[in-house]
Amino acid sequence: MNGCFVRNSTAPLKKVLMCPPIYAYLKENAGRGGNETKIDNELCMREHEELVRAYRSNGVEVVLMTPDSSLHDQVFARDFGACVREGYILGNFRIHSRKGETEAYRKKMEELEIPCVAKCSRGHFEGGDFWMLDDRTMAIGMLERTDEAGVDEIRRQVARYGYEVIPVGSSERCLHLDMCFNMVAEKLAVICSEVLPETFLNMLRSRKFNLIEVGREHLLDCFCNLQSLGNGKAVSFRKNTEVNSALRACGIEVIETDISEMFKHGGGIHCMTFPLSRS
């Protein structure tokens, strides 16, 4: 595989990398109030398969990882890094339990013949914080899992390709930026403006973005956590009724799936999907 990989966040999605949730059986202290949340593994598998079918039926090739029994969060393929036009950025997980995923995904990208064009090693960076606002502008969240040192490392390494990097903070305890900001189409985003800095919001407005609002109370419900397919389409989940209606009012065709059990594991559709090709 060579040439242009991922041009931006909303170009037609051609190919993705995912990992079945075979070992996503328990999430300690994930429930609200800090309770253990037990996960129905068979139901998670069915939900994941439904999502895979949704992609394939809309012309997206799905590459599946072989899950590692020691990596219970590996299903969230998005987080090991990010793909850009020239290749991919290898991230650095902040929490110890996820660090083993880095080598597993690095080997897979090598197998897929996608070159590594930047690597985060001193700081921390996870792919759920990464967005291409356009072909040359990267927005990188600095919330719980990505830090300033990680953003600076990436900025220095991608500068040779002409990318601008914009760091984005949040007043809310979200793991990643994709919990409160999500690009659905060119100049169209689902966003919780209550928890994002005014400088970022003003920049979006200056670029003529149309913003679909999600209330702070729905952040943990993953109302922002969707996946753009390009060509005026997006994948969302069935219970996200208000956002889905707003997207349809903007002319977006919404493909609905049910991933309510996977939510218990702490992530959504966007978290489980790593784009390999958008052009």
Rank of each mutant, 00 (worst) to 15 (best):
C83I: 12
E103M: 03
F93K: 08
L112I: 04
S69C: 11
F93Y: 15
F76L: 05
H96C: 01
F80C: 12
G81R: 14
Q74T: 05
C83Y: 07
I89A: 04
C83D: 02
L90R: 15
L112Q: 11
G91E: 01
V75I: 13
G87A: 13
A77R: 04
K107G: 12
G127P: 05
K99M: 06
V117S: 04
F93M: 13
E103I: 04
C120F: 03
P115H: 08
G91F: 11
R122C: 02
H124W: 01
G87W: 04
T66K: 13
V84S: 10
A118D: 02
E126K: 10
C116G: 03
E113L: 11
Y105G: 00
C120A: 12
I114H: 03
D68K: 11
R78I: 00
C83P: 06
L90V: 03
C120L: 08
V84T: 11
G91M: 08
A118S: 12
T102K: 14
E126H: 10
P115E: 10
L90T: 09
R78F: 08
R106K: 15
G100C: 08
G81V: 04
T102W: 06
P67L: 01
S121Y: 06
F93I: 04
V84H: 05
E110G: 11
P67Y: 07
G91V: 02
A82C: 08
S121L: 07
C83A: 15
C116W: 10
R98D: 08
R106M: 07
